[in-house]
């Protein structure tokens, strides 16, 4: 694997076994994503985009093939090692934000730092910095229900970057947002890529998102295909 390749998938097959049939979510995918890339993976629902993201994050394992991320063959790690590796190297942004409702914005952002040896003060400071990066330095004490959808997603982005991971995975980050909020979120992701040198892998339906990415690919029925003409 080349030094500047952040993610490398080789012949990745992912099948889900059901009671009397199996579903092939990814069909022998081979893909390299360079470090510092803003990579956009598009495709219709059920095409396998999120599954690919899960494999890169190490929250799911391929049925066949290898997944290397930042030089580590994550398919060969045990669950404990994988969890530790993920906390240090991956920031994950969910479509539905998935903030903890009983925690403030700062506490939500601080959550991944509980896995580090940082002191409480250091954790608070880092959470504040992360929230300032996403433009929510004045919303530290707000709970998720006191924030708009766009603000919630920005808190989720702050949570993803607070541990300073090399790779940020974004699963439909604009899926539940209005146009303006979606633009804000995409702008933040682009800034993180350009100014903070984060490798960003985003899966999305949103055709506008493609404009923010440096590279886009299309996934359909578990296979990489040509990007269709998007109206």
């Amino acid at each position: 694997m080349s030094a500047n390749v952040a993610v490398s998938l080789r012949g990745v097959l992912k099948e889900y076994q059901r009671a009397d049939y199996s579903v092939r979510a990814l069909d022998h995918i081979t893909l390299d994503i360079a470090s510092g890339q803003f990579f956009c993976l598009m495709g219709p629902s059920g095409s396998g985009k999120s599954t690919l993201l899960h494999l890169v994050a190490g929250i799911d394992r391929p049925t066949n093939g290898t997944v290397e991320v930042l030089g580590s063959a994550i398919g060969e790690m045990d669950d404990r090692s994988l969890a530790r590796w993920r906390s240090q190297n991956i920031g994950y942004i969910f479509q539905s934000f998935n903030l903890v409702p009983v925690m403030t914005a700062a506490e939500n952002v601080e959550l991944p730092l509980l896995l580090t040896h940082l002191s409480k003060r250091e954790r608070r400071e880092r959470a504040r910095s992360a929230l300032e990066i996403v433009g929510l330095g004045d919303r530290l004490g707000h709970r998720p229900q006191q924030l708009s959808g766009g603000q919630e997603q920005r808190v989720a982005i702050a949570r993803a970057i607070v541990t300073d991971p090399s790779i940020i995975l974004a699963d439909e980050p604009t899926g539940e947002l209005d146009a303006q909020s979606a633009t804000d979120v995409l702008t933040i992701l682009k800034t993180l890529n350009a100014n903070h040198d984060k490798t960003i892998i985003m899966v999305t339906h949103d055709p506008r998102a493609r404009q923010y990415a440096k590279e886009s690919r299309y996934l359909d029925k578990g296979k990489m295909t040509e990007m269709p003409e998007i109206q």
Partner: peptide
């Protein structure tokens, strides 16, 4: 939420 915690790296 437990899924999110595990995604963040909680064992």
């Amino acid at each position: 939420e437990i899924g999110v915690l595990k995604t963040l790296g909680f064992q």
